[in-house]
Structure formats: structure tokens, C-alpha cells
């Protein structure tokens, strides 16, 4: 068989069939979510599945904003995510520059401090961390979550690995030109490290936006809650309102989808390199 001048073999056909079937299975929950978000709750479980609702209930997308303070949850999450991501990018790339390009006493010891904790599950020390935050009076504040997520070993490590691959001669040349270290970092290193910064942005953004256990432990006041625990609260309060739950879920997914799709080119590279060079 030939299509558009190319020979289609049985193998190609099999590859496409498998790829399409797996993709369909992978995306099925999202399709279900989208479809159910436009249905009346009693129609959600009708079988055979009606993928495109005959009478789309757009009202669901209006009602969710009044049933729970969804806008407030989104505002809280955005605020946290943006602050954490900025702090993470800034402090990690700053520290990583020193670890990659400067010499100073205790450099290896300090770096070892980061490396030693990189595989340490947060769950091992989440309890003492909570007690410490409570001691600082930060329990039930957004600041607690910012402090907890903005200074990670992972960020410093990822940025340092990338800076190591930038030739040191570049920094030396800049020093001869009379730049100080802060200028070298701002004018040479930062512009060169876009792929690493993008990777770190997505990782931090996605983790902070989707974080569940952190906000669940720290934030008990409704007005402070993030979208994930807000959604969870919604699910337990209106457990039978399937249409509304699905609509709220779709809304919670959109920001991550946007960030992911716009930066995914860097992300795939980043996952690959951070994974293997590590």
C-alpha cells in the first residue's frame, strides 16, 4: 500500500495503531473529566459513555466559582507558586554560580550538605519541620510553605551541573574586562542558562502548584488554602456533584497545562540531562 508516495508497511501501520491506542488510554481520564464537567451529575455515569454531551451544562463552570471560593484558592496558589519559583530560580542560580566557578574554603563540605539531602525524602523530616515552623509562629501562613519549598538541594544541584558545562575561560575573560562576580553572574551566566532555568521553572512550578501534603499540613484556614486542598475540600463537601467537581478539576489543570505546553521543549531536554548527568 502507498500513501502520498510513501510505502506503508505492516510494521508502520502497527506502530501507529499501538501509539494511537496507548495515547487514547493515557488521555482517556482527561477526556472523561472534560466530558463529565459539562454534564448534569446524574448523567455522568450513563453507559455507554456519551463523550460529547448532547446538552452541555456550561452552568457548571459558572456555579463552581460561587460554591467554593475557587478564585481565592487560585489566587493563593498562584501567589505561592510565583514567589517560590522566583526565589528558587534566584537563590539556586546564585549559589550554583559560586559552587561551579569560584574557589573558597569549605566549598566541598557545603556542597556535600546539599548532595547528602538530595535523596532524602521530605517525608522523613516533615514532622520536625512542622514543629520548627510552629515554633516560629509560621503555622497557618503562606510564608511557611515558601520557606519550605524555595531553598532546595535539587535546584542548586541542577543549576550547578549546568554551569559546570559553561567554559571557565568565559568568566576569566570577563574578569579581565573588569567585571565583578555579580556582573558575570547577571550578564554572562544567566543569559546562557535558559534551558536549565526553564527546566527548574517547570519543575518548581508544577511541584508547588500540585503540592498537596505541604498545604494540607500547614494550612487549615479556608482563606489560606491552595487549589489542591480546596479541590479536595470541595470533593468531600459535594461528593455527589460530579459535574461540578469535574469542572473545578479542569480549572485546576489549566495553569499547569499552559506552563507545560509553553516550556515543554526545554523540559524534555532538561529531564533527560538532569536525569543522566546527575
Amino acid at each position: 500500500m502507498r500513501i502520498a508516495g510513501r510505502k506503508i508497511t505492516a510494521k508502520t501501520l502497527a506502530v501507529y495503531t499501538i501509539a494511537i491506542v496507548i495515547t487514547a488510554v493515557m488521555l482517556m481520564p482527561f477526556a472523561w473529566m472534560l466530558s463529565a464537567s459539562l454534564k448534569l451529575s446524574r448523567d455522568v455515569f450513563v453507559f455507554p459513555i456519551e463523550w460529547i454531551p448532547s446538552e452541555p451544562q456550561w452552568r457548571n463552570y459558572v456555579d463552581i466559582w460561587t460554591k467554593i471560593p475557587l478564585a481565592l484558592f487560585i489566587y493563593n496558589t498562584s501567589k505561592l507558586t510565583i514567589i517560590v519559583t522566583l526565589l528558587q530560580l534566584l537563590t539556586s542560580s546564585f549559589a550554583a554560580y559560586a559552587f561551579a566557578k569560584l574557589n573558597f574554603p569549605y566549598k566541598n563540605t557545603l556542597f556535600l550538605g546539599y548532595i547528602a539531602t538530595i535523596a532524602m525524602p521530605w517525608q522523613v523530616y516533615m514532622v520536625p519541620q512542622f514543629l520548627l515552623m510552629r515554633e516560629f509562629g509560621l503555622n497557618n501562613t503562606h510564608l511557611a510553605l515558601i520557606c519550605l519549598q524555595a531553598f532546595t538541594a535539587f535546584g542548586v544541584f541542577l543549576m550547578r551541573q549546568f554551569y559546570m558545562s559553561i567554559p571557565t575561560e568565559l568568566c576569566e575573560a570577563a574578569r579581565i574586562d573588569g567585571m565583578n562576580e555579580y556582573q558575570i553572574w547577571a550578564k554572562i551566566m544567566l543569559p546562557l542558562s535558559k534551558p536549565a532555568l526553564s527546566t527548574l521553572t517547570i519543575f518548581t512550578f508544577v511541584t508547588t502548584w500540585n503540592d498537596f501534603l505541604g498545604p494540607m499540613i500547614y494550612l487549615t484556614k479556608t482563606e489560606l488554602k491552595t487549589i489542591q486542598i480546596g479541590l479536595r475540600m470541595f470533593i468531600s463537601q459535594y461528593s455527589a456533584e460530579y459535574g461540578l467537581i469535574m469542572a473545578a478539576s479542569v480549572v485546576a489543570l489549566i495553569p499547569v497545562l499552559v506552563v507545560f505546553l509553553s516550556l515543554q521543549r526545554f523540559f524534555v531536554e532538561g529531564v533527560a540531562s538532569s536525569g543522566l548527568k546527575g
Binding site: 481520564p29 482527561f30 472523561w32 473529566m33 463529565a36 517547570i202 508544577v206 502548584w209 500540585n210 498537596f212 487549589i227 489542591q228 486542598i229 479541590l231 479536595r232 470533593i235 467537581i245 469535574m246 478539576s249 479542569v250 485546576a252 489543570l253 499547569v256 497545562l257 507545560f260
Partner: peptide, 10 residues
Amino acid sequence: VASLVAVAVV
């Protein structure tokens, strides 16, 4: 990358 709460309920 999808929100765990959202996909878990689905």
C-alpha cells in the same frame, strides 16, 4: 504534571 487531586478523583 497533571494535578494529582484532579486526576485521582477521575
